[in-house]
Structures are given as C-alpha cells and as structure tokens.
C-alpha cells in the first residue's frame, strides 16, 4: 500500500513536470523546423534553425526590438533599484510619525490595478509630448518611467533594511561620512544580495511588460520584444518556425537569469511576503 502510494506520487509529479516543460520543448524544437513540419506536429529537432533565424532577421526588425527591450529593462532596473533602495533606507533608518504615514499611503498604491490608471497616464504623457518629445508618447523613456517608482520595491528594500546593522551607520558617522556617503559607501555594498534579488524581479517585470508599451509605443522603430511577438502571433499566414525562434530568443534572457541566479530569484519572490 505504501509502495503503491509512492509510485502514484512519482507518476503524478512526472505528469505535472512533463506538462510544465513540454511547451518549452516544443518551442525550442519548432524553432529548428520548417513551418510545414511544425503544423504536422514534428517532435524532433530539424535542420531549419539557420533558415528561421535568417528569415527572422530579414523580415522582422528583431534587432531593434531586442535592443529597445534591453535599453528599457536596464534603465528601468537601474532607476528602480536606486530610488527604491534610497526610499526603503530612508523610511526605515529615519523613522518618524509622518514618514510612517507616508509609507502606508504609498503601500496603498500596490492595490491600484494598472488597467485603471493606463488611460490617465496616456493622457499625462500626451500632454507633455509637444514640449518634451524625448519623454513623451512613443519614447523609450515613457515606456519605463511609470514603472520606476513602485511601492513593491520600496517595501522590499524597507523589509530588508531591517536586517542591516545600525552600528555600521554610527561607525560611518564617526568616520565623518555624510548621510548619503553612508548610504552609497556602506549600505549599498553590504546589501548586495538584496540588490541582486530586486534586480532580477525588476528586470523580468520590465522585459515581459506588454500592456503599457502597447499603449505608449506606437511606431515600429520603438517596438519591444513582447510587442513584436504579439504582432507575429496574430499574423494571418504565420511562419511557425520563424515565430518560434523569435519566442525562443525572447525567453533566453529570463531563462538565463533564472538558472544562474536561482537562489536570489526565490529570495526576491519571498521578499514580498516577509515581515
């Protein structure tokens, strides 16, 4: 009976694992096959990878989309980490009644669904476009600006700052460092793992973001990878091999981040629950 249960567990988990992995397998295999073979349900790697990639680079502006996605994701991650860690540190290290109240108010913004502020945000960017086109509609800046200051990351850094040794701050003050100096020279280096975990989440969020870029980026030269894939996916005569190779390429950065930094990845997820 016990052995039977064991076997049942393994079968159940194996089925779940196969269902979880199969779409990845199919995605990679299909990117090496011709479109006809993909439709016929071919499950083995083929010889059309180079051809698919050539088609992709010839027919679609994938280089532009990739570089746009990277620029947006890197800038977004950088500014998110900088502003959120400053704020998390500020709220925790310089506590006061009014700062706690402000913090609670900021937390409320986590409940705001993005779909409900998308129209006003679009109008806001529309209004500044004539005077400042570089941060207006259709600019890469507009694609990441609203995602930079989010309560989630402020909360995340504040929670982690609780574990930061306050003695280090006193030591810095005695050494004559300014408050900002303490933050940049002492806090930042000691909190490396916290920054790593936050960086992973921020990068993935930005890399995968679809709705806001769809709203704010309009010309083909400003397309990001999710926009490109969404367009390809809705084409009437899809070249499956080519599309699958585009999807594979877009998945590589996040998959690499996941496998290389698995520990930080989970730490980043858990950071939202602690405390």
């Amino acid at each position: 009976m016990k052995k039977f249960k064991r076997i049942l567990t393994y079968v159940f988990l194996s089925v779940a694992a196969i269902i979880s992995i199969y779409p990845f397998f199919w995605m990679v295999v299909s990117s090496t096959n011709a479109s006809v073979d993909v439709t016929r349900g071919r499950q083995l790697p083929g010889t059309h990878l180079i051809e698919n990639l050539t088609n992709l680079f010839d027919q679609v502006n994938i280089v532009t989309a990739l570089s746009n996605s990277f620029i947006i994701a890197i800038l977004s991650t950088f500014f998110t980490l900088l502003t959120a860690s400053l704020a998390g540190y500020g709220f925790e290290m310089f506590r006061s009644k009014w700062k706690d109240r402000t913090f609670n108010l900021l937390l409320l913004s986590m409940m705001i669904p993005f779909a409900s502020i998308m129209v006003p945000l679009y109008r806001l960017f529309g209004r500044i476009t004539p005077t400042a086109p570089l941060i207006g509609i259709d600019s890469l800046t507009a694609a990441f600006l609203p995602t930079v200051t989010t309560a989630f990351f402020i909360f995340f850094f504040r929670q982690n700052t609780k574990m930061f040794a306050k003695d280090l701050i006193e030591a810095g003050r005695i050494d004559g460092l300014s408050e900002l100096g303490i933050f940049f020279r002492i806090y930042m280096p000691t909190m490396k793992t916290t920054y790593a975990a936050a960086a992973i989440i921020a990068f993935m969020n930005s890399w995968n973001n679809f709705l806001w870029p769809l709203v704010i980026l309009q010309s083909p030269s400003q397309q990001t990878m999710p926009l490109l894939i969404s367009n390809l996916g809705s084409s009437y005569a899809p070249d499956f091999g080519m599309i699958m190779s585009a999807i594979t390429i877009s998945t590589i950065p996040t998959a690499v981040v996941f496998f290389v930094m698995q520990k930080h990845f989970v730490a980043g997820m858990m950071g939202s629950v602690k405390g």
């Binding site: 988990l13 779940a16 694992a17 979880s20 992995i21 779409p23 990845f24 199919w26 995605m27 993935m204 890399w207 995968n208 679809f210 990878m225 999710p226 894939i229 969404s230 390809l232 996916g233 599309i243 699958m244 999807i247 877009s250 998945t251 996040t254 998959a255 981040v257 996941f258």
Partner: peptide, 16 residues
C-alpha cells in the same frame, strides 16, 4: 520543472 513556466513572458507563452 514545475516552477519553470513562471519565467516565461506572458506574451510568449500565450502565443505558444
């Protein structure tokens, strides 16, 4: 294996 789907972008897995 079971966690892996969580690293894909929503658009990518939707098209798949």
């Amino acid at each position: 294996a079971i966690f892996l789907p969580a690293v894909t972008s929503l658009v990518a897995y939707s098209v798949i």
